Structure formats: C-alpha cells, structure tokens
Amino acid sequence: MRRADVATTHDDASTVAAALRPDNTPSMTTRVADDVVRTVVERETAGGLGSTLDDYVVNLTVAETVARTAREHRHNHE
C-alpha cells in the first residue's frame, strides 16, 4: 500500500475541506484542524497514488478559489 499525507493551510479551511470531500474517493480521508486541511490518500500502486494526487491538487486549487471568492463576496457585502 502506498500512502501520502497532504497538509495545506487556508484562511477558510472548513470551506476548502467541504468543497474537496465530494470528490474524494474511498481511499481518501480529509480532516480540518484550525486552518489546516489534511488529506490522507492510500492506493495500491505508486502510479495510482500519483494519479490520485494529481487530481487532488486540481480539486484543491478549485476549492481554494471558491473559498476565496466566497470570502471576498461576503466582505464586499458587509
């Protein structure tokens, strides 16, 4: 079994994690602690792990953009 533990820091970690979870596969778990999103990925092969991590990074980028846009929208309407 191959395993990766990815931890990233975000201004709105809960929103980022919520945006990521629907795209998680059964081999992935995502948790939030303070401003850190931690996702653990386990796959049978290194190639499978690499592919899953590639997808995860794309999803993480989108999730961070969505969270930032929502934060800016809230700020502009306060």
Rank of each mutant, 00 (worst) to 15 (best):
T30M: 06
R74D: 06
R3E: 14
E44T: 13
A7G: 13
A18R: 13
R71M: 00
E78R: 04
E44W: 10
T9G: 10
D55V: 09
R43M: 07
R2A: 07
R31W: 05
E78T: 14
T15R: 13
T65S: 13
A70R: 14
V32G: 10
R74I: 05
P26V: 00
D5F: 00
D35A: 12
T29L: 12
H75K: 08
A13Y: 01
A70M: 08
T30C: 05
D34R: 09
P22G: 14
G47C: 02
A19E: 08
S51Q: 10
V32Y: 08
T65Q: 13
T52M: 02
L49R: 04
R68Q: 07
T45M: 04
T15W: 04
V37R: 00
D35N: 15
R2E: 12
V36W: 11
R74W: 05
D54I: 00
R43Y: 02
N76I: 09
R43A: 08
V6K: 05
H77R: 09
R21T: 15
A33R: 15
H77Q: 09
H73G: 04
P22Y: 06
V36K: 11
R71I: 02
D54V: 08
D12C: 11
T69C: 14
R3N: 04
V16M: 02
T69D: 12
L53E: 02
G47M: 06
N76M: 13
T8L: 08
D35H: 13
E78G: 03
V66H: 01
T9S: 15
H73E: 11
T30R: 01
M28K: 09
D11Y: 08
V6D: 00
V16E: 00
M28R: 13
V37I: 06
A46K: 06
H73T: 14
R38V: 10
R2V: 10
T15H: 07
N59R: 12
T61I: 01
G47R: 10
L20Q: 03
D23E: 13
A17M: 05
T61A: 11
A13M: 05
T45E: 06
A46D: 15
A67T: 01
E44V: 10
T69H: 09
R21L: 08
V16T: 01
V37N: 03
H77T: 12
A4M: 09
T65H: 08
V41Q: 01
V41N: 00
L49D: 09
H77M: 07
A19I: 02
V58Y: 11
P26D: 12
T69W: 07
R74G: 01
T15P: 01
L49W: 09
D23Y: 15
E78D: 07
H75C: 02
A4H: 01
D12H: 15
D55K: 08
E64Q: 09
L60A: 07
H73N: 10
S14C: 04
E72F: 04
D55M: 08
L60E: 05
N24D: 14
Y56S: 00
G47T: 15
P26Y: 05
R71K: 09
H75S: 12
L20H: 00
A19F: 06
R74Y: 05
N76D: 12
L53I: 06
R68E: 11
A70D: 14
D55N: 12
G47A: 14
Y56V: 00
V16L: 03
V37C: 04
V66A: 07
R38N: 13
